[in-house]
């Protein structure tokens, strides 16, 4: 049981690392959104499922409710993250930022 929890948690941390490094490395605003918005979502998904499983070790009504709340956060993140990404992209498009294409220097 502990092994599954550790595996899920470390997979989540791995995707979080990908998100943080991607924000630093990608060349422009539009391509930076790809790791920022979505590698973080999958990382949060895996890490939170692991934590909810660990929370169910001593099974009782209280821990079951807490795990359900963690699942509620997860559903909320899954609904909210694409919407937030779309809002940021919309702000960038209306401001007139041109997408980076191959061969230009990084901004």
């Amino acid at each position: 049981m502990d092994i599954i929890v550790c595996l899920l948690l470390f997979a989540g941390l791995f995707f979080f690392t990908g998100g943080a490094v991607g924000i630093l490395r990608f060349p422009d605003f539009y391509s930076r959104l790809h790791p920022a918005g979505k590698l973080d979502t999958l990382g949060a998904l895996l890490a939170m499922i692991g934590l909810a499983l660990f929370n169910l070790h001593h099974f009782s009504l209280g821990t079951l409710l807490t795990s359900l709340k963690i699942m509620l956060i997860l559903v909320f993140v899954f609904l909210a993250s694409p919407t937030a990404t779309h809002a940021i992209v919309d702000a960038g498009v209306r401001a007139g930022l041109a997408p980076w294409t191959k061969g230009e220097e990084r901004r």
Partner: peptide, 30 residues
Amino acid sequence: MLLSLYRPVFGPTVVDRMIGVNAIGSKTTV
């Protein structure tokens, strides 16, 4: 989170800063 703080501090445009803040927030939840 400290690593992604680079974007909000040095980001070229305002939207870049917003991306960094959003990434830090989703890490804070976990």
